[in-house]
Structure formats: structure tokens, C-alpha cells
Simulated assay, not measured.
Amino acid sequence: MITYEEHRLRSLVDEGRWIDLLGAYRQARAAAVALDLANGGPVDGDPADGDLTGSDLTGSDPADRRRTVATAIAASAAQSRAGIATAALGHLIAFAAPPEVAARLFDADGGPGTAAGVADHDAGPLWEVLATRHTWRRLAPLLGPPPVRRLVAQTRVLLGEDLSRGAEPDPEGVPLLLEPWESVGRAEGMPVREYLRQGGSRSALLTLPASREGLARVELPEPGVRLPGQPATRALAELAGWARTVCVRGPAAGAAAQLAPGPLVTGGYLPFALAWPALVQAGIADRAHGAAHGRLALWRVLTAMTGVQRPESADRAEVRALVARMRCFTWDDPADRLRHLHLALEDPATGLSWAVSGSEEV
């Protein structure tokens, strides 16, 4: 049964009345937030960035602090659920509206609860939908919130745009132009989803190994000695939260031996450029995340492997040198499900290797 509201929205779409559709989106999102909070929605999220500051808590007693934190968490959770409730309309506006209208999805000028956040998604995050539709030159003057600007810019870079002279520097120093190995990897498999007007998306399932072609039967050595507490291991675990990670002293095959199903595997070496697409996609298993999240997370892994503690302090020349000398080993696991990643990364200069291995249904 088609409701009056659905019929009205379809009429607005047919007539190209995008400002009215934006108003309907904002009204519905604000109403969903207010209703959720009025009903005492479950506290199942984390405070959004910027919800709490030191001044919010300083000088308050423990009971006040608990109430402040609980209120922030409830508000964040309400925003998240409101984003889900209005995701389909937001997707349509991000996809089809003129950029001058679509970019206003993220503006707070409509009042509390009306603006889409970076986690609002349907088939994928709304900012990524928008980024696939227009160039940075069109979008840059229109986008306000810094987190949205950053993710849109990184998406445009992944789509092949050179923003090294046309955008503000990335706060972590991630290049605004694809490195050579990223360009090769992009040609092998595009991690950015292809979105459809009426909702949904298409994307390649990028796995490692993608097939057994080029692999051979390999006997792995004894597992390397684990080195706990390595920053790069934590960064790799954050990239692929559904997989196991380990760092060892020794070659890539010794790291693989820590996670492989047995000493005999079907495996082989490959250039880092061919591993890049699957690593980027590993970071976007959640539909609220886009390919920009995967690229940023992978750069954190690489900078941590160079020994830098803070990504913004990294020397990009060192990262390039690391990738140039890195040895990458992949292997097959007979128990693999649809999404899988089995990769060991060896830095011959330090004698350290990292491995990441896991599989899951999509």
C-alpha cells in the first residue's frame, strides 16, 4: 500500500523539487531523533566526536559526569538510528540532486538533528555517494563539516583525481594523489562502490588470494617468534577487524605459518600493488564505512611499519621506500568463506613481518 507521504515524495522527485526533498529529509530526520529520545531509546552507541569536552566534565561530581556521558551516548545513538530511518531518501538526494543541494545534507543550518553525519548510510555512506557523483572542484566550495570534506576528498583521490594542489592537506598527511602502487592497484580492482539511483550498489569482491592462479604448493617454515604490542599490528587489526593479525621476527612465510591452517599451503609472492585493493576493501566491511576509510587505515598501517608513532609525523619517502622493498606472501585456506584475506608483509630492512588472515560471509 502506497502511503500519502510516499506519493508526495515521488511527486517531488518527478518534478525535480530537490529543495523540497531536502526539507522533507531534514524534517523526517529531526523527528526521528526527537522520537527516539522521547521514547528513551537504548543507549548502545558511543558519544559522537565533539559531544564531550574536558570542560563538560571538569568540576562535576561523579553522578553529574555519568549523566552527562549517558546523555551524550543516548543522543549519539538517536542520531545513528535516525540516520538509518531516513537513509533511503538521503541516498536519493546525494545521488541525484544538484551538488548545491546534495551537499547541504551535511549542513546543520536546518536545526538540531537535521544534518546527516559521516555514519549515515544506505547502501554505503551518503558522503561517498555524493563523492562518486561530482568532482572535488564542484564540491569543495559547498562542503562544510571537516570530517565530511576529508572523506569526500579522499574518495575523489581514489577515483583518480589529483588534489595535491586543489585541497587542504590531509590532517594525517595522507597524500592527495595516488601513489604509483595505488594507481596500479586501482586498475586491478576498484574499492569504491558503484551506487545506483534507487538505492543499492555494485562492487567487486576483492580477496586475497583472488584465485589459485600463479600459486604453488608451499611448505611453510617454523612459525616466527611473535612480537606482541607492535603499533603496526594494532593498526592492521583496526584495518581488518574481522581477521587475525600477528607480528613476528623473520620472513613473511614465518608470519604466515602463525596463521595458516597447516605447514603445507597453496601460496606465493605478489607485488604490494596487487594486494592494495583487497587491503583497502578490508577496511570497509561495514556499510557505514567507505573506501576512504580503508585507504586512511592502510596508510596508518604503513606509517606504523616505518616506526612512526603518529601518522601525521610520517616521512612519505620512508613509506614509499618500505613499499618498494616489501615482500608480500599470500596463501589459500580451504575453509575460506566469501570474503577472505590471507597476507603476510615482510620488511627486509628490519627483519619484521606482519600477517593478517581471516574470512567471513558478506
Rank of each mutant, 00 (worst) to 15 (best):
252 A>M: 00
285 A>R: 13
232 A>V: 01
251 P>R: 00
197 R>A: 15
253 A>M: 09
242 W>M: 08
272 F>R: 01
281 Q>Y: 13
276 W>A: 11
227 L>F: 03
248 V>E: 07
278 A>I: 13
201 S>H: 04
275 A>N: 03
205 L>A: 11
218 V>S: 03
214 G>A: 08
260 A>Y: 05
293 H>W: 06
282 A>K: 03
269 Y>C: 07
282 A>T: 10
261 P>S: 07
250 G>V: 02
293 H>C: 15
218 V>E: 10
236 L>A: 05
202 R>T: 14
223 P>Y: 00
203 S>Y: 13
204 A>N: 11
288 A>W: 02
218 V>C: 10
282 A>P: 12
241 G>I: 02
253 A>V: 07
211 S>I: 07
197 R>K: 13
294 G>L: 03
211 S>N: 08
281 Q>K: 14
290 G>V: 03
284 I>Q: 15
259 L>H: 06
287 R>E: 12
241 G>Y: 06
193 R>M: 09
264 L>Q: 06
204 A>E: 14
283 G>N: 04
287 R>P: 14
286 D>A: 12
209 P>T: 07
210 A>Q: 10
260 A>K: 01
224 G>P: 02
238 E>F: 04
244 R>K: 03
276 W>E: 14
238 E>N: 14
257 A>Q: 03
244 R>M: 02
204 A>F: 12
203 S>N: 12
242 W>N: 07
194 E>R: 06
268 G>W: 10
266 T>Y: 06
272 F>Q: 06
261 P>M: 00
255 A>R: 01
264 L>F: 05
237 A>Y: 02
261 P>Q: 02
277 P>Q: 05
227 L>G: 11
261 P>G: 08
219 E>C: 00
256 A>E: 01
278 A>V: 15
287 R>W: 04
261 P>L: 00
279 L>M: 14
231 P>F: 00
212 R>Y: 02
190 M>L: 13
253 A>N: 06
192 V>W: 00
237 A>W: 03
206 L>P: 10
207 T>Y: 09
274 L>A: 15
224 G>M: 01
251 P>F: 00
200 G>H: 10
208 L>T: 12
293 H>E: 15
275 A>D: 09
